[in-house]
């Protein structure tokens, strides 16, 4: 039995179903816990089939595609996304978005710096105006931008 990606997924799902079942059984009364418990059992049963059946070799597995085409690029993209979400409120939407677009494109290998800076600036400012001012959605306030605008006024 080869330890394919499917089997790893099956083990994760069995553990997940087991945890859900345990929480439903220990912390919920029977009426509220019946549905989650039943679904958790279903997840474990289906995952067990996925784990034990012979390898099907279809879809991406058949096309010899790996989970990630490039782990370093994927991890950079995911980590920078998380960092962007974390700093967007303290830094403000325009500043964080500008820095995010520039850093992610640069780290992934984009080298037309002038075009990159211009696109990042145009998008972050336009998005703030369109969503924040025109559509009335509240986006995180920019301390630096406000200070600069205040100094200009």
């Amino acid at each position: 039995m080869t330890f394919s990606q499917d089997r790893i997924a099956a083990i994760v799902l069995i553990l997940f179903g087991g945890c859900a079942y345990w929480v439903a059984q220990t912390s919920l009364p029977s009426r509220a816990g019946a549905m989650p418990s039943t679904v958790a059992i279903l997840i474990m049963a289906l995952a067990a089939v996925l784990l034990l059946r012979p390898s099907r070799n279809v879809g991406k597995e058949q096309e010899n595609e790996t989970f990630a085409a490039s782990w370093p690029r994927l991890l950079k993209a995911v980590a920078l996304t998380l960092l962007y979400f974390a700093v967007a409120v303290p830094l403000g939407f325009v500043t964080a978005t500008f820095l995010f677009i520039v850093s992610i494109a640069f780290l992934a290998g984009y080298r037309n710096i002038r075009f990159l800076f211009a696109s990042a600036l145009v998008f972050s400012v336009t998005a703030k105006i369109v969503f924040g001012q025109i559509l009335g959605l509240r986006l995180p306030e920019d301390l630096i931008v406000n200070l600069l605008l205040g100094a200009m006024v």
């Binding site: 962007y84 939407f93 677009i101 992610i104 990159l116 972050s124």
Partner: peptide
């Protein structure tokens, strides 16, 4: 590489 971070930013909004 410029379009995709813009899409991620839209998900934040």
């Amino acid at each position: 590489l410029i379009l995709m971070p813009i899409i991620i930013s839209m998900t934040f909004i």
